[in-house]
C-alpha cells in the first residue's frame, strides 16, 4: 500500500494523510451448495470459493477467503471428479438449445450499432453504489429495482464492437446480464431483510433482530416463469461442541 500510494499518487502515507473510501470487496452469499460435496441443486454443477456460500455469515472475517477457497475448492474438485467418473452416458442436449445459446452469445457482435456496454456497466455501478451501498433504505432499494429493469433493457441492445478474438467489448456485453442478476439479488435480499446485520445496514431498521431475522437465510431462485423469487429458510441449531467455542455475544441468534 505504501508502494502504491507513493508510485501512483506521490503521497508518503507515513507522513501525509491518505484518502480512504469504501469499495465492493467481497460478495457475502453465493450459490447454495451441499456442505459435504459442494454440489449445487443442479446435478453435476459444483461451486466453491467466493461464488459459493455457506461459510461466512453476514460478514466475512478478514483473511478467511483464501482458506475458504483452498479447503472447499479441494472438496468440490474431488467430488466433481468422482461424480464425473460415474457418468456413463451424457444427457443429450437438444440441438435447438445449442443453437439458441450460440445465437445469444453472438448477438452483441451481429449488431451494427448500439450503446457501448461500458456506459451501461458504469451506470449500473454508480446506481448500485448510490442506492444499494453502505446505508440502505426501503425507498432507495425499491428505486434500485426499477433502475435495474431499465438497465436490463439497455443491456439487451449493446454493441461491443467487432471481432471474436480478445474483444473486451463483446465480453462485457455478455457479462452485463450476470452483473444485473447479482445486483438484483443483492437489492431484493436487502429490501426484504428488515434489520441491520454484518455488512447490511438499514437506516430504517438500524439494529439486529436476533429473534426473527437472526434465524433465517434468504434463498433466491428462479420460478417457473423465469422470474427471480426470494424465499426464507431456517438453519439447524449450532451443535453443542461448537457452541462451547463461541462467546455469548456470538450466540444471540440462538436464544
Amino acid at each position: 500500500m505504501y508502494h502504491q500510494f507513493k508510485e501512483l499518487a506521490a503521497v508518503d502515507i507515513t507522513k501525509e494523510a491518505m484518502e480512504v473510501g469504501p469499495t465492493a470487496h467481497y460478495v457475502m452469499g453465493g450459490v447454495k451448495v451441499n456442505f459435504d460435496t459442494q454440489e449445487t441443486c443442479i446435478e453435476g454443477l459444483f461451486a466453491a470459493g467466493e461464488a459459493a456460500t455457506g461459510l461466512h455469515g453476514a460478514n466475512r472475517l478478514g483473511g478467511n477467503s483464501l482458506s475458504d477457497l483452498i479447503v472447499f475448492g479441494k472438496i468440490a474438485g474431488e467430488h466433481a471428479a468422482s461424480s464425473a467418473k460415474e457418468i456413463e452416458q451424457f444427457k443429450e442436449i437438444p440441438e435447438s438449445e445449442i443453437k439458441e445459446i450460440i445465437k445469444d452469445t453472438l448477438a452483441p457482435l451481429s449488431r451494427d450499432e448500439g450503446e457501448n456496454p461500458a456506459a451501461v456497466v458504469s451506470d449500473l455501478r454508480k446506481m448500485m453504489q448510490d442506492k444499494v451501498g453502505i446505508i440502505r433504505t426501503k425507498s432507495l432499494l425499491e428505486e434500485a429495482l426499477t433502475d435495474l429493469d431499465n438497465l436490463e433493457d439497455r443491456s439487451r441492445v449493446v454493441f461491443g464492437g467487432s471481432g471474436k478474438t480478445y474483444n473486451p467489448g463483446w465480453h462485457q456485453s455478455l457479462e452485463i446480464g450476470a452483473m444485473i442478476d447479482v445486483s438484483r439479488m443483492c437489492t431484493l435480499a436487502a429490501l426484504r431483510r428488515e434489520e441491520s446485520r454484518g455488512g447490511h445496514t438499514r437506516e430504517d431498521f438500524p439494529v439486529p433482530d436476533h429473534s426473527h431475522w437472526g434465524k433465517v437465510n434468504s434463498v433466491i431462485s428462479m420460478n417457473d416463469v423465469g422470474e427471480m423469487e426470494i424465499g426464507f429458510v431456517t438453519y439447524p441449531p449450532i451443535p453443542s461442541d461448537l457452541k462451547e467455542l463461541l462467546d455469548s455475544e456470538d450466540l444471540q441468534e440462538e436464544e
Binding site: 456496454p117 478474438t165 473486451p168 467489448g169 462485457q172
Partner: peptide, 26 residues
Amino acid sequence: VVLDAIHSIQAEFAPDLACRWNCKAG
C-alpha cells in the same frame, strides 16, 4: 494512469480495443 486512458478510449470510442489487465495495482 495509462490504463485508465485505455479504458476511457474503450468506453468512448472503441469497446473492442484489446488490452489485457487484471489488478490495476502492479
